[in-house]
Nucleic acid binder design. Sequence first.
DNA 1: TTGAAAGCGCTAACAA
DNA 2: TTGTTAGCGCTTTCAA
Lengths: 339, 339
Amino acid sequence: MKNVTIKDVAKAAGVSYSTVSRALSGSPEISTDTRERILQVCKEMHYTANTVARSMVMRSTKLLGLILTGVNNPFMSELAYHIDRQARARGYNIILCNSGRDLDQEKELFELMIGRQVDGIVLLPSGPESYESLHPYLECIPTVFVGENLRDAQESYVSVDNYRGAYIGVEYLHRLGHRNILYFGRRRGSTTHQLRAEGYAAACQDLGLEPQYCNNTFSSTSIKYGYQLAKQLFAQERHYTAIFAATDTNALGILQAAEEMNIRIPEDFSLLGFDNIQYSSLPRIELTTIEQPMKMLASVAVDSLLEKVQNELAGYSHRVLMPTLVERSSCRALPRAEG
Amino acid sequence: MKNVTIKDVAKAAGVSYSTVSRALSGSPEISTDTRERILQVCKEMHYTANTVARSMVMRSTKLLGLILTGVNNPFMSELAYHIDRQARARGYNIILCNSGRDLDQEKELFELMIGRQVDGIVLLPSGPESYESLHPYLECIPTVFVGENLRDAQESYVSVDNYRGAYIGVEYLHRLGHRNILYFGRRRGSTTHQLRAEGYAAACQDLGLEPQYCNNTFSSTSIKYGYQLAKQLFAQERHYTAIFAATDTNALGILQAAEEMNIRIPEDFSLLGFDNIQYSSLPRIELTTIEQPMKMLASVAVDSLLEKVQNELAGYSHRVLMPTLVERSSCRALPRAEG
DNA sequence: TTGAAAGCGCTAACAA
DNA sequence: TTGTTAGCGCTTTCAA
């Protein structure tokens, strides 16, 4: 485990070490032949520049913090993948951290990242409270929130038009002939969820449908909670021909409960999800859903973060992408009579 | 965006800056009251230590490189999650990189990580060729391979006993009454896969079964390839009552093809997977499979890497964990007659 | 075109 | 117990 430095190269090449630095940085203030000679020596000695030292003098680590609630979540891991790709294409690397959806952890991670001198942070927040909670840090470090709508908060974020997505979903089911659509998993505390519920309500209003809700009483969303909720729901009488689930994980919970109770989808009722996580395209699941364009989300997130980093501007930007419908097999058209 | 340094704190507290350093590092060579006074000033000034500067003098970044083929793969993302947790518990952070299963990328990432002075690398290799390909780098930086068996290679690795796992799987199917078990997705080029196939063959031999194979002619494993392979397989006559898939993704491809062709599982044949990725536990999928203990894999990987890092020993360790059977709904017991 | 030297923020050996 | 100083590997003025 050697450690060839710029000085070693300088000695070997018989020049001063600032000359080596110039050769490496592609400075114009150097003759072509000395540059080539030095580069040759570097190669021979297997010199690798010490990024840490460079970071210190350049006051930039070319490192981005990526804080999310848990990479093992399929939505997050997909996003993380694209964020890494995009960042690397721009010459940055990613320090990955999991907050576990814990505000204190999140704060701690911000401090850690600031100490590590990352150039910026991509945050998939624990919830809308994150914005308030992290406020003091946001002035110290360029940050972009992704996935969560911050509405008119004075901080950069990238998200999907959740209101519009829900609206599109209801329209689709309506077009299929459904007139009784239950919204499943409505939940307090998340702006994203609030917007989806609002979009649903607005579409119902516009199309003359009666809104019906099954509220999520848990503090978060998961297949397990979706399952528990669905079990309760199925114990009651059915007044709907379609369920619009607030998230794909909710929909998967519904699928599980339905399976257990011998309820057939889409024969007994149609099921529409939201997010288009990887799970949803799996055989036997084939969930029709509203897609969040994750690759786009990732790339816009990195771009707007780097814009902020490189311009040193204190401004912020809100980017809201349009979700789209992905048709698979969990929804069916209703014959006139049934509608 | 201020930047409070140790010097600023020193000036404010009226001490030399080495005293501040001592107060922060918890050195005993300092009086309790000056320490407390300094810590107080640090808090007031919102001082955060610059990890980059510290790294330089300490010659340790407390950073680990995590190189995998793609976090968006559910097996990888699960592993990444646990690796981060374990690393952080030990005071390290993770730089995440995706190699895209490309050997050149992998090399490039090693160089990048070495330049970044990471203390060690956790590698989920592209394949068994990675070991050869990365050889020059392995002497420069402590590395642990995870997931792939390197057999007797002189480098640390953590993996599962794939041979034994396959053996257990065949025993299980045999116990269920199956006498004709097809091994699906046998593939060249991966030691992991070779060992699984060997375990299958050995169990067949020991139990007096005739081995049958459906070979994976693709260079890698995915649901899509599994699907294509299965389509071909189903076009032929069936001489088996159970399929043992080399990986869960293969099994999911089989499920997809079966769905399309109205083949019922486990009624028409039983299906056993290997890995226990998250997908496998989903409703409607409920794949019975051989589990790789991912949390354990992650924690052992980090531990043996840090052992290497901290002891500065040039040695290596091979840790092989035992896989276990996870019973779900894709296998059924055969009545005597059918066996 | 090249070299000398300062300095990024910190730790640690040596003095006081 | 505290202060002074050198130096980690690099970039970048300023001189030559």
